[in-house]
Amino acid sequence: MGDREKLESLMKSTPARIGVGRAGVRPLTHTMLQFRKDHAAAVDAVYGEVDESILRQLGLFTVETCYGNKETYLKRPDLGRIITDEGMEVIRERCVKQPQIQIVVSDGLSADAITANILDVYPALLDSLRVHDLNPGTSFYVKGGRVACMDHIGEVLQPDALVLLIGERPGLVTARSMSAYMCYKPRKGTIESDRNVISNIHPGGTPPLEAAAHIGTMLRGMLERQTSGTNFY
């Protein structure tokens, strides 16, 4: 093996940024700029907004949590778990009560994750629910949501199971990764270990279509076994 082949075989074995060379004790210019570019994408994902036209296209109306603004959202995770009073009124007015499955979409820590994946995942998820003979209620979008906003929504709509599609904390490998959190009868006082999650949903990770199929299977299982979380397996 020549030196170049040796280096390439090492580089192929890991996504870590190795074999990058140096200028004295500092990185080469393009290596440094590539790193800065990936960080810029991650920061923009946190501070970005989900494209309104996508939400319209999917027929999702929007409610907000009590997060107020981005800074407060980041400092006070507790506020992202509560829907505003106005939001709750809208939900009560517009949503089917006690649905079998409630679908909720939220930006979470990456608006880009929703913009990049939801047009693939959402229709596929509806198909998957049909295949499993499950009836969804009225889906909507939560701006400024945290995972546990599931409990507040569950309390009011009383679904058998709820799935929250939410943007993950962005990394440098991808800033557009989405998670699907699922819970059987989420209510006030539900704990983290009652939820199940499929994470890393993006074209380079768990492909959106595969994820949608998997979510349907999981939700069917939750309804049959009447449980979720660590008890599910």
Partner: peptide
């Protein structure tokens, strides 16, 4: 120290091998 400061498993950034060598120098 992490390669180019980017931890591809924990998804956060630390200091790079270059940074530590630069601090020593």
């Amino acid at each position: 120290g992490v390669a180019m400061a980017d931890d591809c498993m924990l998804n956060y950034q630390s200091l790079s091998f270059h940074d530590l060598a630069a601090l020593r120098e």
